[in-house]
Computed example of a mutant assay.
Amino acid sequence: MEETIIPKTSTVLTALLRADFTTLWRNRRAVVMVFLVPIVILVSWKDLVAKMGAAFALSNSLTYGLIAIGLMGYTNSIARDRDKGIFQRLRVAPGPNWTIMISRIVVQLSMIALVTTAIFIVGYDYDKITLTPAGYALTYLTAIVGGAVYLALGQIIVGLIKNPETVNSTSRLVYFSFVIVGIFGGMGMLGKQIQEITQWSPYGTVKTILAAGMVPSSWTMDSTYALLATLGYTLVFATIGIKNFKWNTK
């Protein structure tokens, strides 16, 4: 009688990570687009750095990058792989199901770190923006917290919608809605009431904690409230998204 050898969970997770990072590299054109949007915004807002401050320009640009990762990168990759039956095949492989999603999330967290680093490099090279060591460290932490909101929001989209084309169009619509309302609503161009709503929306709370993280001495109670709101959004979005997620499109 042959003995069935079940690989360790760590071995399975390592294999999944290797495969997911390889897939990310093969889809590098899509990755470039994720980097391009926040960098273009940062470069085009050069004149606002002197007027509104470096933290304003960097936090806004980075927020758009985080939105792109969660709503464009993560959401569409999950929908595409589910439609191709990849998740179904992975589920019958030895290893717990949670390793599948953990691998995907680790890849997205790596993207968050890379986009944050790219924003820092462009900000320094083009706008001569520098932060303190504490500012850099805290920004990475707040970027991960902020990015989790949009990953969780993306999870809702793939949880409630099965068709990959509909997922793609919905994620784009939500993405551009965040961008447009964030730019104009955040600056008060759509009225005072919309500005206040924007401030406490996922876009506004993430931007607030990013800006405060870049200048730790500016952290206030409002920043703490924004952090708590961000964590609350993440918890609610993740709960809804995970509860409604299906491993196949049938």
Results as ranks from 00 to 15, higher is better:
37 V>H: 02
239 T>S: 15
202 P>H: 08
168 N>R: 15
71 L>F: 11
122 V>I: 14
71 L>N: 05
170 T>R: 10
102 I>V: 14
41 I>G: 01
222 D>I: 11
201 S>L: 10
190 L>C: 02
59 S>P: 03
31 V>P: 05
222 D>S: 11
159 G>Y: 14
161 I>T: 10
41 I>V: 14
183 I>N: 11
214 M>R: 05
167 V>S: 08
214 M>F: 00
132 T>A: 11
73 G>A: 13
31 V>N: 06
230 T>I: 12
229 A>Q: 02
63 T>N: 13
95 G>T: 10
18 R>S: 11
63 T>P: 03
218 S>T: 10
167 V>D: 03
57 A>N: 05
49 V>R: 08
198 T>C: 09
143 A>W: 00
48 L>A: 08
40 V>F: 15
145 V>S: 01
178 F>N: 06
157 I>Q: 08
89 R>Y: 11
167 V>K: 10
53 G>Y: 02
158 V>I: 13
132 T>S: 15
132 T>C: 04
4 T>N: 13
249 T>Q: 04
120 F>V: 10
52 M>I: 03
44 S>V: 15
98 W>S: 12
125 D>C: 11
187 M>K: 05
170 T>D: 08
176 F>P: 14
41 I>A: 09
151 L>A: 04
217 S>G: 00
208 T>R: 01
19 A>K: 11
181 V>P: 01
136 Y>T: 13
207 K>Y: 03
108 Q>F: 01
239 T>F: 15
200 W>Q: 01
171 S>H: 09
130 T>C: 00
126 Y>L: 07
55 A>N: 12
190 L>H: 06
55 A>K: 07
174 V>S: 11
164 P>D: 04
209 I>Q: 03
169 S>D: 07
55 A>F: 03
82 R>C: 07
238 A>L: 15
188 G>F: 06
191 G>H: 06
136 Y>S: 12
180 I>C: 03
28 R>P: 10
219 W>A: 07
62 L>Y: 00
94 P>W: 00
116 T>W: 01
234 T>V: 07
111 M>L: 11
5 I>L: 12
161 I>R: 10
42 L>H: 03
238 A>S: 12
211 A>P: 00
38 P>F: 04
202 P>V: 12
156 I>R: 11
228 L>W: 04
168 N>C: 02
137 A>S: 12
236 V>Y: 09
150 Y>P: 14
178 F>G: 01
130 T>E: 09
170 T>L: 10
85 G>M: 12
244 N>K: 15
135 G>F: 04
166 T>K: 13
245 F>D: 01
200 W>P: 01
182 G>Q: 03
154 G>Q: 10
110 S>F: 12
181 V>H: 02
115 V>H: 06
83 D>G: 07
210 L>C: 03
121 I>P: 06
7 P>Y: 02
149 V>D: 06
194 I>K: 03
134 A>F: 06
6 I>H: 09
212 A>L: 08
190 L>F: 13
70 G>F: 06
196 E>F: 09
206 V>H: 05
2 E>G: 12
250 K>S: 12
38 P>L: 07
231 L>Y: 04
244 N>I: 09
65 G>D: 06
52 M>Q: 08
197 I>S: 00
8 K>Q: 13
171 S>Y: 07
166 T>R: 13
75 T>I: 08
162 K>C: 08
128 K>I: 08
112 I>Y: 02
137 A>W: 03
65 G>P: 07
234 T>K: 01
41 I>P: 02
93 A>D: 08
